[in-house]
Amino acid sequence: MKVKWYEFSSPQALARDLANKVSGELAKALSARNKALLAISGGTTPRLFLEELSSTPIHWERTAVTLADERFVPPSSERSNARLALRHFFKNRASDAEFVPLYHSGSNIDEAAERASKTIAALPLPLDVLVLGMGNDGHTASLFPDAENIGELLATLDGPPVQPVVSEAAQEPRLTLSMPVLCAARAIFLHIEGDDKRAVLEQALAKKSNLPIRAVIERAGVPVHVYWAPKG
């Protein structure tokens, strides 16, 4: 498996190192192409990292930032990944970055995914940097093992860059970047914390499984850098 593993003594130490590494990759992209494209993840785990990243001294005014996935809820909702990003990342130096949200209002998740796909397709893909998280069920982005269309989501080689996801575990419908978009990123980081998530990932890597996190790592065009720390 194409994995490089990094362990840290605390979430704080991990957040600082990951922020430096991600900002370094973005700086290289800015130097090479004058633009950079970053996708970040939601949830509780990345908050310290996002805070650290927001203060790094790069040309954020030439950087576009989107989300690996989003819940089908407006930014006013406490469950919105956009809300989390606006609160913990789009401030300090990173307030100059361009935010490209996935959520669009619509009558249903399919309509929202279609609108989000047009937005993402207009960006200078591939992603320069992708920072993923992982749940205890092995999902990453919003590729949930129990999703109604999980087989299609994991197998697709082309198609719209944003896909709709309906999953009981996800609670509400989701929008996720597609496998082709995720796996084409120039640099991929997986940020996890706690012994429980480490055990899930090690099991997924040790033997053939249908877990989405394994599928992403297998198909990624570059090694996935796993950043792990015990829970604080």
Results as ranks from 00 to 15, higher is better:
Lys2Gly: 08
Trp5Phe: 15
Tyr6Ala: 07
Glu7Arg: 08
Phe8Glu: 12
Gln12Ile: 07
Ala13His: 08
Leu14Tyr: 04
Arg16Gly: 00
Leu18Tyr: 07
Lys21Tyr: 04
Val22Pro: 04
Gly24Ile: 09
Glu25Met: 07
Leu26Asp: 13
Lys28Gln: 10
Ala36Gly: 14
Ala36Arg: 06
Leu37Ile: 14
Ile40Asp: 07
Ser41Glu: 01
Thr44Val: 13
Thr45Arg: 11
Leu48Tyr: 11
Leu48Glu: 15
Phe49Trp: 01
Glu51Asn: 13
Ser55Ala: 09
Thr56Arg: 14
Thr56Trp: 10
Trp60Tyr: 09
Glu61Phe: 06
Arg62Cys: 05
Thr63Arg: 02
Thr63Val: 05
Val65Leu: 09
Asp69Pro: 10
Phe72Ala: 00
Val73Gln: 00
Pro74Arg: 05
Ser80Trp: 03
Ser80Gly: 02
Arg83Thr: 00
Arg87Thr: 15
Phe89Met: 00
Lys91Phe: 01
Asn92Met: 02
Ala94Arg: 12
Ala94Lys: 12
Ser95Trp: 02
Asp96Phe: 05
Ala97Thr: 12
Phe99Thr: 13
Phe99Ala: 12
Pro101Val: 01
Tyr103Leu: 04
His104Gln: 09
Ser105Gly: 02
Asn108Thr: 02
Glu111Val: 00
Ala112Tyr: 15
Ala113Glu: 10
Glu114Asn: 11
Glu114Gly: 13
Arg115Gln: 08
Ser117His: 14
Pro126Ile: 00
Leu127Arg: 05
Asp128Val: 14
Val131Thr: 04
Leu132Val: 13
Leu132Met: 09
Gly133Asp: 00
Gly135Gln: 10
Ser142Cys: 05
Ser142Asp: 12
Leu143Gln: 06
Leu143Ser: 05
Leu143Ile: 06
Leu143Asn: 10
Ala147Ser: 10
Ile150Ser: 11
Leu154Val: 08
Leu154Gln: 15
Leu157Cys: 02
Asp158Leu: 00
Gly159Pro: 09
Gly159Ala: 13
Val165Glu: 10
Val166Trp: 02
Ala169His: 11
Gln171Ser: 06
Ser178Gly: 03
Ser178Trp: 05
Pro180Thr: 06
Pro180Met: 02
Val181Leu: 04
Leu182Thr: 04
Ala187Ile: 01
Phe189Ser: 06
Leu190Asp: 10
Ile192Gln: 06
Gly194Val: 11
Gly194Ala: 03
Asp195Ile: 07
Asp195Tyr: 07
Leu205His: 02
Lys208Gly: 11
Lys208Glu: 05
Ile213Tyr: 09
Arg214Ser: 14
Ile217Met: 11
Ala220Lys: 04
Gly221Glu: 07
Pro223Cys: 12
Trp228Asp: 03
Trp228Cys: 03
Ala229Asn: 14
Pro230Ser: 10
Lys231Ala: 15
Lys231Gly: 07
